Simulated scan of single mutants.
Amino acid sequence: MRDLVLQFFQVLGVLLLAPLLQGVIHNFEEKVQRSEGPSILQPYRDLWKLFRKEIVIPDTASWLFWAAPIIAFTCMLTVPILIPVLTDYPLPYSDMGDILGGGLILTLGSFLILFAGLDSGSSYGGIGSSRATMIAILSEPTLIVVFVGITLLARSMIPFVVNHLLVATPALYWSPSHLFLVAAFFVLILAETDRLPIHSSTHIEVYMIEEARILEYSGPLLALLKWASMMKQFILYTIFCNVLLLPWGLSHAGAPLGALGAIGADLLKFLVVLLVVVVVETTQSRLRFYRYQEPLAASFLLAVLSIISSQMG
């Protein structure tokens, strides 16, 4: 019963803390650029405002336009069940899927949003979906190769096993195969959270990608999409920190005090990673869009090197 409660709080924690992570990132980005920056609670205010607005649906939209935000939001609520968020041991429903299964669910929401952008019939939706597809052609295979590299490194597809092995085996943690995976996954985080060194998170027609796909959405549907995006970012940070980079600080017995300590440890680890992400994002020169493949190709190469290194011992 206690483990079921812990699993519920895992999902609830991802749901409630994802906007906070987004707010901290936006605030730090502005601070690095010597601006005041929005409050770290601003994403909560934005979501509350959107949930109170009216829904406007394009005349050309089908049922897919309605279903995509709901399914994407549901997918982001499912993945926290499968990964180590509070405990370093599997909870009751954690065996529903492995690393590849979690990755499939994680990308399913983005896949449906891509089709919803085309479904509206808007030229902006078409632009955003086509550009997102161009990036996904490189990012999705890289994600699979990274997960294969993790599997070969730990001889297991269960994230909890990877966590235990890295904690118990310092030689494996500092091995080239593991370090290559960490670097490859870090670049993937930049790509999946729309932080590649290209102009994309903007409403300028020439550059926008993610904003173009959801430009026709409004009200609660737009709130669900934005909330799902924040949750995806939180989940990627969780996988990166608790499985690969900093696999310490999780609860061993599932006691209430240990779970609270795990929440604090997660937030501290996320703070370290987001500081690096913000510095990398704000100090890089912005590239032209057609050069988006450069960081993703580097990430793919790092993942391949990790596989080669692990197989060579």
Rank of each mutant, 00 (worst) to 15 (best):
L4A: 05
V5G: 10
L6M: 09
F9H: 04
L12M: 10
G13F: 06
P19G: 02
P19S: 02
L21Y: 07
N27T: 11
E29W: 02
Q33G: 05
Q33F: 03
E36H: 06
P38Q: 07
R45G: 10
D46G: 09
W48P: 04
R52V: 13
P58A: 15
D59R: 15
D59H: 13
W63R: 14
I70H: 14
I70N: 06
F73M: 14
F73L: 13
L77K: 11
T78A: 11
P80C: 13
I81R: 10
I83M: 13
V85F: 13
L86V: 08
L86I: 12
Y89S: 08
Y93K: 06
I105M: 13
L114Y: 11
L114K: 01
D119N: 10
G121Q: 00
S123M: 05
S130A: 07
S130W: 01
T133K: 08
I137K: 03
I137E: 01
E140Y: 02
I144V: 11
I150N: 00
A154C: 14
M157T: 11
I158R: 08
F160Y: 10
H164Y: 00
H164P: 02
L166M: 05
A171E: 12
A171F: 06
Y173E: 00
S175L: 01
P176D: 07
P176V: 07
H178K: 00
L179G: 09
A183M: 14
I189G: 04
L190I: 04
A191P: 03
R195N: 10
L196M: 14
I198G: 11
S201L: 06
V206R: 13
V206C: 05
M208T: 12
M208R: 12
E210P: 00
E216K: 08
S218K: 07
S218V: 07
P220M: 01
L222I: 04
S229R: 08
S229G: 14
Q233C: 04
Q233H: 05
I235A: 14
I235M: 07
Y237G: 07
T238E: 01
I239A: 15
F240A: 09
L244A: 13
L246E: 12
L246M: 15
A253D: 15
G254W: 15
A255C: 03
G258R: 09
A262M: 11
A262L: 06
D266V: 10
K269T: 01
V273T: 14
L274N: 08
V276I: 15
T283S: 14
T283C: 03
Q284W: 15
Q284D: 03
S285I: 13
S285H: 10
R288N: 12
F289G: 02
F289S: 09
Q293R: 11
Q293D: 09
L296S: 12
L301Y: 05
L305C: 10
L305H: 08
I308C: 08
Q311I: 06
M312N: 13
